[in-house]
Design a protein around this nucleic acid. Structure first.
Lengths: 139, 139
DNA sequence: AGCTAATCTGACGTTGACGTAAAGATGAGC
DNA sequence: GCTCATCTTTACGTCAACGTCAGATTAGCT
């Protein structure tokens, strides 16, 4: 089952233009094809794109910042491929050790943002409480 | 204690240009002054600006979206002023009733973002766990 | 083979959010 | 009252992240 740019675009809720732009920036793999032929994608590409927009929208990362992370993700994909091809337990271990830091980088970023937002939430909730109390005291 | 644009800018970690721009957009009050005279601010303005950049950065709101919220906030400031000037318990109650929805709008926004981020955090944490488990199984 | 919708590759346009430079005015300190 | 850092307005510049348009090409269908 191969998808064309219009279909993956719709599924990922972006425009074809955005996809070509991301490919140009190196955010998406330049799918192998002769010049002029239509781009082809898979479900995996849809998921990847969705993850990209998710990080973009939730963390407010620039496409450039995204590319750094994605380079890391690419590393992971590459690692997984090598992982499946090797039999050496030693190398498998080393590969897993390479993978972890990338995930942890992302986790750290998400958690910093999370705690900042929680702080904001707390402050807003307190404001609301104060207003509600004053309202009760008046009634 | 009055501040000038350079001072409030530094305290709020933005540039004077940004402040003038925000004033132009209606995000900050056009401080009353004759044409050509220097703008003057107070500590309250610093806090306000910081809240603005906080919402901008944490939620990724556009300045236009911010203006809608701020219109609400302006409502609150105006309300508080009227609140302090009136003696009528009736009116005080009504004013508080106007205030609450604005705070709740912001709270809702923050909480939606929070849960989306928490979901992302969970997924990342699970990925990490899977990798860690495979690593243990190999060792 | 022929038709049509979707896609291709440039290339230029747009929008938001400021940056920057110029030329003159202001105001705190001496 | 003079000085000099800071501010004023005006206006053009910039950069990211796409949008849009044109003209040619491709691919699925009959």
């Amino acid at each position: 089952m191969t998808l064309r740019i219009g279909e993956i675009a719709e599924r990922s809720d972006v425009t074809p233009r955005t996809i070509r732009y991301y490919e140009e920036l190196g955010l998406l793999p330049r799918s192998e094809r002769e010049q002029g032929k239509h781009r082809v994608y898979t479900e995996a590409d849809v998921e990847r794109l969705c993850e990209l927009t998710r990080l973009r929208d939730l963390l407010g990362l620039s496409l450039d910042e995204l590319r750094s992370m994605i380079t890391a993700e690419d590393g992971r994909a590459d690692i997984r491929r090598r992982f499946n091809e090797t039999d050496s337990r030693e190398e498998q271990l080393a590969l897993l050790d390479e993978t972890l830091p990338h995930i942890e980088t992302q986790l750290a970023l998400v958690r910093r943002r999370l705690s900042a937002l929680q702080e904001l939430e707390t402050e807003l909730a307190e404001r609301r409480k104060r207003v509600q109390r004053r309202r009760r005291d008046l009634a």
